[in-house]
């Protein structure tokens, strides 16, 4: 990283830490959402951007993480700090099962992507029939109070969730930066570019792909726990939906797959875009259902067509920092 990049990163960090003291509550909720997608996109990026394994079913890890921690709290009053470990353990287990089956049976590319969708959809419908977790009617976590910070149960005002997400995003960025420079980063990128050549260089590709799945699913499970305690209601239809998986990957794809800042930039651009469209439409009085998503889709289309490598690589060149 060059000096200019370090300075920019420091400035961005300072801005984000100071934000809650200048921004209103609406802006804070938007910022929290951006950080949520930045973090989750970073997690997906480990699997696809680094190791080249296209997952279109990451909602399974969010959902399982959210339901694991949510159920412990709902049924037994066990707080999220313990639930987190169950969430991670279950998500990683599912990731390893999918990974083992796919990689051992030589499933890759489009087929792997479809396998991940199939597992997510299978789980969604399965959760619809699990009455213990509320079924299609949903599971609702008790919202006791919102004014004081109760860290043990992760209950508190919006600012607490904002800082939690900021800390997670920063940690994810640091972890990914370290991973990319480590042995794993080199091996993953080799596998992404050409798996056969990677294997000929002594890389046990199965094991390293499994490591990517492990890290990615563990990180995503944490998003799920956050989701459960931030929104306090969980519906299988909502959380496991393929639409959620797509939301996760939009940020990194628009920002730049395989880059460190792409997921963050992409999440910011897309969330602000979506918000901007909503407000513009409201200002014009065009509040017809669907029209917002049409515009969003058109912008997405344009971004993919004209910036196939994402916004970050183009921007990084312009402001003169490393990709």
């Amino acid at each position: 990283m060059n000096r200019r990049a370090a300075a920019l990163l420091l400035a961005l960090g300072a801005l984000l830490v100071a934000l809650p003291h200048v921004a209103g509550s609406y802006a804070l909720s938007v910022a929290t959402l951006i950080l949520y997608f930045a973090y989750t996109g970073q997690a997906w990026n480990v699997m696809m951007g680094f190791a080249g394994q296209l997952s279109l079913g990451h909602s399974i890890y969010v959902g399982v993480g959210a339901y694991a921690a949510g159920a412990l709290f709902f049924h037994y009053g066990i707080g999220p700090w313990a639930g987190l470990w169950l969430a991670i353990a279950l998500s990683v287990l599912i990731g390893l099962v999918i990974g083992f089956l796919a990689f051992r049976f030589g499933i890759s590319g489009v087929y792997f992507a479809l396998l991940t969708i199939a597992f997510a959809e299978f789980t969604r419908i399965g959760f619809d029939h699990l009455d213990w977790l509320g079924g299609p009617g949903g599971m609702f976590l008790k919202v006791a109070q919102r004014d004081q910070i109760d860290l043990a149960n992760f209950r508190g005002p919006p600012i607490m969730y904002y800082y939690a997400m900021l800390a997670l995003s920063a940690a994810a960025l640091a972890l990914c930066a370290w991973l990319l420079r480590s042995r794993a980063g080199y091996y993953w990128r080799a596998i992404r570019e050409d798996e056969e050549a990677a294997q000929a260089l002594g890389i046990n590709t199965f094991r390293w792909k499994m490591l990517a799945v492990t890290i990615s699913s563990a990180m995503t499970a944490i998003s799920g726990v956050f989701f459960a305690f931030y929104y306090n209601n969980l519906f299988p239809e909502q959380i496991f939906n393929i639409g959620r998986s797509i939301e996760i990957i939009l940020g990194p794809v628009i920002g730049g797959v395989g880059t460190l800042f792409g997921p963050i930039l992409g999440a910011a651009v897309l969330t602000l875009l979506s918000d901007g469209i909503t407000e513009a439409l409201a200002a014009f009085g065009w509040e017809i259902p669907g029209i917002k998503q049409v515009l969003y889709g058109l912008v997405l289309l344009a971004a993919i067509m004209f910036m196939p490598h994402g916004i970050w690589p183009a921007l990084a060149r312009r402001i003169g920092v490393d990709r």
Partner: peptide, 28 residues
């Protein structure tokens, strides 16, 4: 000639436009 995820995103954007254009025109 682009990677699979790039093709996927392109057609996904097309799909998002299509499904919501129908929603806009015909309602739910």
């Amino acid at each position: 000639t682009r990677p699979e995820h790039s093709q996927f995103m392109l057609l996904l954007a097309v799909a998002i436009v299509m499904v919501n254009a129908l929603l806009t025109v015909f309602g739910p």
